[in-house]
């Protein structure tokens, strides 16, 4: 190897991965600020709606309304939103990072690490909001946004479920973004057609073999936390597949 002189020594293997992590939060607007702002708007909107419903309802009906709020889906939006953030972030930072001499391997590892960090940060944030929601009796209105039934029963379960859900959507986003970066629109179309076939085929299989009961039992047996734990397997598969897709991708215009 030809001797190369540099002013400072080049970054180490870990340093290179961490540089990619930093790249994702160089401008924290899209990855950190906007998601929290959206979460805040959802919370405010829900507070307004709860206020209107409760003030309009007869006192006798209020109990059943509160039960209904246990299944509010307002906060699930944030997870899907983070999947979009992941897709967007990769499609623009991948060609940018390669222009800066980053390898695809370092890029993917750094990106995965960055998203894991974001998942942890958002999970902790949501868990804190859930605790506040608990302590204030649902923001004083009996509303439930962060403590809805499918987020678990206590803060440990919630932290885990939030984290697993974020990882799930981030890794699906990473896999989809890798397909986009490598094969563009055709790849994405093929991906969703393939996904559709798998889902419909799976459903058909369950129907013909009369296994829907067993399928339901699986979740019942696994429980809420167990089911989310299983989603980590899918997340791992998506994350690893994304890596192999991206390794052969070429930044195109």
């Amino acid at each position: 190897m030809t001797a190369i002189t540099t002013v400072r020594p080049p970054a180490s293997a870990l340093g290179r991965v961490l540089n990619v992590v930093k790249l994702h939060v160089t401008n924290p607007w899209n990855t950190i600020a906007v998601p929290w702002m959206i979460m805040g708007i959802i919370l405010l909107a829900n507070l307004a709606i709860w206020g209107i419903i409760l003030s309009a309802a007869a006192p006798a009906d209020r109990v059943s309304i509160r039960e209904g709020l246990a299944y509010s889906g307002g906060s699930t939006f944030i997870f899907v939103y983070m999947m979009v953030v992941a897709i967007q972030a990769i499609s623009v930072t991948f060609p940018f990072a390669l222009g800066f001499g980053v390898t695809r391997r370092d890029y993917y590892l750094g990106t995965a690490l960055a998203f894991t960090g974001l998942a942890a940060m958002f999970s902790i944030g949501l868990t804190i909001l859930a605790a506040i929601e608990d302590a204030t009796g649902g923001w004083g209105l009996g509303g439930r946004l962060f403590t809805t039934a499918y987020f678990g029963e206590n803060w440990i379960q919630r932290l885990f479920i939030y984290f697993a859900a974020f990882l799930f959507f981030f890794t699906i986003g990473m896999a989809a973004a890798s397909i986009w970066v490598r094969w563009k629109a055709n790849g994405i179309i093929a991906f969703f057609i393939g996904l559709g076939i798998v889902v419909i085929g799976g459903a058909a299989l369950l129907t013909y073999t009369n296994s829907w009961g067993g399928f339901g039992n699986f979740f019942a047996t696994a429980g809420l936390v167990g089911s989310f734990a299983w989603s980590l397997v899918i997340a791992a598969i998506a994350g690893i597949s994304g890596f192999f897709v991206l390794r052969k991708a070429t930044p195109k215009n």
Partner: peptide, 19 residues
């Protein structure tokens, strides 16, 4: 990486993150 760290490649069509 040991090669690419010493290369700077400026493209006409270089894309920058949206924001």
């Amino acid at each position: 990486a040991s090669v690419l760290q010493h290369i700077s490649f400026i493209k006409e069509s270089q894309r920058y993150p949206e924001d």
